[in-house]
């Protein structure tokens, strides 16, 4: 009657992972599947979900405007991600080389804005980018823009404000890896003939690649589904997929159509994750 130790270990494993698995199943997998199902239901003009099944939504998703919006969603999200990474690598390098005292202080400075509500931080940009605000005045004085130019409500404003709000999400994982990086490796590279810049790009950057991938996921994925920032500082020609989903839902009362677009978004979000997972697998296999 002695319990098989291997089987026992399995059982413990199942019990330990069960709560998380059930949670994901109930609150993530099933709702996502439900959204996918709704996109194959007919819509009613009164905002309900009709009986039976249809491919109407699939047909409607071939709307000639959608490729443009999809493309904008992709390139804006990528631009935000790349900008965040470009900013966080030098900052993380600097932070990692700081003395412990300064590290704490500077990290605190990065975290403090987080204590302010997200919406308020976004609204603050409306003051900074006001067409008669100080920034516009300085730019107009320098002759870069005509006076009274609207700096808000375009794609550039969306990218700028998104980079600002998502920078800590990129900086912290990059810093976490950079802090563990062995800087003696850079000295070794320089001993072997690299100059400082070469050492930075050929030793430091590959050394923190794990942090870069995490940062990419943390910034890219939420921005693919962004709604709030393009809604507040974006204009009439910078709506992203998230904004279109909201419009289909609220203004058109077309639930299946919104569900169809959401399913497209889900696929879009899964793709970068799959890429990163495959990349990690391949690296671990090496």
């Amino acid at each position: 009657m002695k319990a098989d130790p291997v089987r026992r270990e399995r059982l413990v494993e199942v019990f330990l992972t069960a709560p998380g698995f059930v949670w994901l199943l109930l609150f993530f997998l099933l709702p996502t599947f439900n959204v996918l199902l709704i996109s194959f239901r007919p819509s009613t003009l009164t905002g309900g979900i009709g009986e039976g099944w249809t491919l109407d939504t699939l047909q409607q998703l071939r709307n000639p405007d959608y490729p443009g919006i999809l493309f904008r969603t992709l390139w804006v999200s990528l631009a935000i991600t790349v900008s965040c990474l470009l900013l966080s690598v030098p900052v993380a390098y600097f932070l990692a080389r700081c003395s412990q005292r300064w590290k704490t202080r500077l990290l605190l400075l990065i975290m403090i804005p987080f204590l302010t509500n997200f919406i308020i931080r976004v609204f603050a940009w409306k003051v900074i980018l006001h067409p008669e605000g100080w920034l516009a005045s300085v730019l107009a004085f320098a002759g870069l823009i005509p006076p009274g130019t609207q700096l808000l409500y375009n794609v550039r404003a969306v990218i700028l404000v998104s980079v600002y709000t998502y920078l800590p999400f990129a900086l912290l994982p990059v810093y976490a890896v950079a802090e563990k990086f062995d800087f003696a490796l850079m000295e070794a590279a320089m001993d072997l003939g690299c100059n400082r810049i070469q050492a930075f790009f050929r030793v430091f950057v590959p050394g923190i690649s794990r942090g870069l991938w995490t940062a990419t996921l943390l910034v890219l994925i939420p921005n693919l589904g962004a709604y709030v920032v393009p809604d507040i500082v974006g204009g009439h020609s910078s709506s992203m997929l998230g904004n279109v989903i909201v419009r289909r839902l609220f203004s058109d009362r077309n639930l299946p159509h919104a569900a169809g677009l959401s399913s497209v978004l889900t696929v879009l979000v899964l793709l970068p994750m799959i890429v990163v997972i495959l990349h990690r697998r391949r690296r671990e296999a090496h």
């Binding site: 067409p131 008669e132 808000l152 974006g234 204009g235 009439h236 020609s237």
Partner: peptide, 21 residues
């Protein structure tokens, strides 16, 4: 007309007008 607009706005038009945005 859209080319001349900042955006379509149902909530912030009052604040925007008051701040001369």
């Amino acid at each position: 007309w859209k080319a001349n607009l900042a955006k379509f706005e149902s909530e912030q038009f009052k604040n925007g007008l008051m701040s001369a945005e």
